[in-house]
Amino acid sequence: MTIGQAAGLKLGKAVRDAFGTALKELGNEFPTVVTVDGDVGNSTRTEVFAKAFPERGFNVGIAESNMVGVAAGLAAAGKIPVVSSFAAFLTCNAYDQIRMCVAYPHLNVKMVGSHAGISIGEDGASQMAIEDIALMSALPGVAVVVPADAPSTKHLVKGMLEHKGPVYMRCGRIDVPEIYGPDSVLTIGKANQLREGKNLTIIANGLMVGIALDAAVALEAKGITARVLDLHTVSPIDEEAIVKAVKETGRLVVAEEHLPHGGVGSAVASVTAQLAPCPIEFVNIGNTYAESGDPEGLLKKYGLTAEAIVAAAEKVCSR
């Protein structure tokens, strides 16, 4: 994996691994946390928690809609359920249950989707969530959080458990570079600025943050300096940080591992359209399903590379 190399980052663990470990470490501090799984706890890594706290881990089998309903009941009865599956099956298979049993009554359910995006690789499009941010951020009152690396996941998992109300957290499958340190401060709803720059701001989250940092290094060599913002919370969105970026750098590139409609790009554009109109370019997988392949080959084929961000940055600077 070459992500983060240009930016001098070292490879760390996958977000899903950090999620499972963090949940286990927080198990005693949050005694009402329980996990609800749909036969994929060894993929989502909730099994790390469930093995440490066996009486607090439930596996309801391959039955995602039931799983979400069960989590809603647990939440209504005072528990903090962390319900998880592959992001595609959690958000798409159980969407009506999420809407009706979790979002509408605003219950304290933490929904965690692993294997998000095309970087899962060989399993192919049926297992790739590329519409989950659109679906989940459409729901009123649901916080949508997309950690970029292992250290930030640790902080955001804690933030998720402390948060009152439903949260969706998106996790990737593959190992990613470390961007944050153990003492970094991450708050749900507040974007983190990772690099200063004058000519434009690159807004990214998840896997795309490391790629954005690589792109910023390449741009600097071309005489373009880019601010990089980690928009780890898509909803509620940090309007202040976005408006500030527009005022101070004038232009935006938004990069995400998602479809073009309804994701981070759309969310950012609706903020700027109202509060700070400016030129924006979008980097995403395009309006298509992806396919099987190696993660790096897929990222290249579907345009999720530092080169693609550099090209978008040059384009937005010429507008």
Partner: peptide
């Protein structure tokens, strides 16, 4: 493999002899 019609789960858009795209 990237580009192969033989994807990790059946894809009826890629191969006419596949009756349904499954995997969920």
């Amino acid at each position: 493999k990237l580009g192969s019609r033989l994807e990790g789960h059946p894809n009826m858009k890629r191969l006419d002899c596949i009756e349904a795209s499954t995997g969920s």
